[in-house]
Design a protein around this nucleic acid. Structure first.
Lengths: 261, 261
DNA sequence: TATATCTGTCCGCTATATTGTACATATGAT
DNA sequence: ATCATATGTACAATATAGCGGACAGATATA
C-alpha cells in the first residue's frame, strides 16, 4: 500500500516490509489469494512472494484456505491481535459506549482510528432505523475523506500532515481535488472546536459527526462518530454532539490503559 | 520460544523469524519491554533486535507504550487479527455457544485451539458458581497438559505427533514425565470416542471435558471444554458431555466458513 | 573517584536473502 | 497442434541484512 518508500527504482525490498505488504494486501482484499495473484497485484517479484508466503505459512501467520493453494491471514495474527486488544483494553467499554450512542440517537455510531496513514472504522453499531446506514469495518480509507480524519491528525504540524498523508489521498472519490490547504484549515478548526461535522464527501445523503477520544499524550487517539441522514443530522445537531461528547469523555481514560504490569 | 530451529550453532537467523519471535515473546510476557530486555531474554543479538524493533515500530506492528522506550504489540496487529476473525467468523456463534454452555452447566466453558505446536484458550466463559475456576486466555500451554490436546492432534500419525510436540512439553508441571506412548494411546482413544475427559494434570481439584469442533477437513479445528470441580464433573458426566456435544455440533459449520468471496 | 551495568547508536564484514531468469506443468484458446 | 497464460519450482548472482564489537551517555555501586 505504501507506494512512498520505493523512491529509486531497482532497490531490493526488505523481507519484513514485503511480508507486511502481503498481509496488508490480504486484509484489504478480504479474501484468500494465490501467491501468484498477490505478486502480480502488489507488483513484487514472484519468487520473493513465494518464498515469503511459505515462510509465513510455516509460522502460522498465513494459512491455506479456499483451496487451490490460496492463502489468507492466519491464526497467529488473531492471537497477536487479541493480545493487543487485551493490553489496551478499550473493546469492552467501547462496545458499551457505541451501544448507548446508537440507542440514544438511533443513528449509526462508529469508533475510528488511524491505520498507518489512513483511516479505518474499528467498531460500528448500526442505528435503529428502517434504513440503516453502515460502512465496512476494517477497510482503510483516505484520511481527507472523513470527518474523523480532521481530528486524528490535528496534533501534527501543517508540514507533518502533508508528509503524513499520501498525496493521492486528497483526490476525493468523485474525482475532485481537495486542496491540502483547505483540508488543513478544517483540521485547525476541528482542533479548536474539539469536533468536526460535515455533509459526507463520499456520498450525497449522509451527515457525519466526529469528536476526539484523547489518549495519554492528549491528542486524538481515536474518534467517536455518528453517521446520519442529512436532514436528521442537521435537525438534531446539538443533541447529537452532546451525546458524542459525553460518550467520548467516558472513554477518555480507557484506550491507553494497560491492564497488567 | 521455538528452540527447535537453531540446530547448528552460529547460524544467522532470518529477520522474519526473529521478528515473529519478538512478537510471540511480547505476547507471552503480556507487557511492554525494552528492546534490550527482549534481546537478552530471547537470546538474540542486541543490534539485530534494535534494528527489527525499529522496523516493526515504523510499520505499526509494534508501538511505544509504558514509557522508557518500552514497546508492545501494535495496532496493526489488532487490525490484521480482526480481519482474520472476520473471515473465519467463529466469534459470534462461539460466544453464544459458550454462554449457553456455561448457563446449562454452571461450569467454566472454554473454546480452545492450537497455537502453533502448543495449546491455547481462545475464549472462555466462567461458570455461575461461588468459586469460579478460570484460566488465562491466550496463554500457550504444552499440548500434553490438556484434555483438548488429545483431540487437537488426533488427525496426525503417531510419528507426526512426536515430531510436532516439543519433547520437553511431555514434562508435566509437577515435574513428572508423561511417556509419549501413553499420550498417544490417549489420543487414539479420544479419537475413537470423539471426546476426552480426565482429572486435570495441572492441578488437583478439576476435572476436564473436551469434545472436538471439526473443521472443513474433518479433523478437530478446535475444542469445546468444561472445567469443573472433580466431584461435580464425575457426578454430571453424562449430562455435561451431552451439552458439549450438542454445542459442538452447533458450531461445526461455523469455524471455517468464509463470509464473502 | 573508579567500576560496573544498562541502554542505545554506529560501523564494517560476510553469510545469505532477494531477485531475475529459466524450467516444468496444466489449462484454455485458436 | 500451436500459442498464450497461469501456476509453482529451482538456482545462481549480488546487494544487503544480520551480526559482533566498539563507543558513549546514564545510572547505580563501591
Amino acid at each position: 500500500m505504501d507506494a512512498v518508500q520505493d523512491e529509486a527504482a531497482g532497490k531490493r525490498a526488505r523481507g519484513l516490509d514485503r511480508a507486511f505488504e502481503i498481509l496488508d494486501f490480504l486484509r484489504q482484499k478480504r479474501q484468500a489469494l494465490k501467491p501468484n495473484e498477490i505478486a502480480a497485484q502488489i507488483g513484487a517479484p514472484r519468487s520473493s512472494v513465494y518464498e515469503l508466503v511459505n515462510l509465513l505459512l510455516s509460522n502460522g501467520i498465513l494459512e491455506f484456505t479456499g483451496g487451490e493453494g490460496r492463502v489468507y491471514l492466519g491464526r497467529k495474527l488473531y492471537f497477536l491481535g487479541a493480545a493487543y486488544e487485551n493490553h489496551f483494553d478499550f473493546t469492552r467499554e467501547c462496545e458499551a459506549t457505541l451501544e448507548r450512542l446508537a440507542g440514544e440517537t438511533r443513528e449509526t455510531a462508529q469508533f475510528c482510528m488511524l491505520d498507518g496513514n489512513r483511516y479505518t472504522v474499528v467498531r460500528m453499531r448500526e442505528g435503529a432505523r428502517p434504513f440503516r446506514i453502515s460502512t465496512d469495518v476494517g477497510q482503510s480509507v483516505p484520511i481527507p475523506w472523513t470527518a474523523s480524519g480532521r481530528l486524528l491528525v490535528a496534533h501534527l504540524s501543517d508540514q507533518d500532515i502533508l508528509n503524513f498523508i499520501p498525496p493521492q489521498d486528497f483526490r476525493l472519490p468523485g474525482g475532485e481535488w481537495l486542496e491540502p490547504q483547505t483540508f488543513i484549515a478544517e483540521v485547525r478548526q476541528a482542533e479548536r472546536e474539539g469536533l468536526f461535522t460535515f455533509n459526507s464527501i463520499v456520498d450525497s445523503f449522509t451527515h457525519c459527526f466526529a469528536v476526539p477520544v484523547r489518549g495519554e499524550e492528549g491528542h486524538a487517539a481515536a474518534t467517536l462518530c455518528l453517521v446520519t441522514p442529512r436532514d436528521d443530522g442537521i435537525a438534531n445537531r446539538d443533541r447529537y454532539l452532546d451525546c458524542l461528547k459525553r460518550a467520548a469523555a467516558g472513554l477518555e481514560h480507557a484506550p491507553a490503559r494497560p491492564r497488567r504490569g
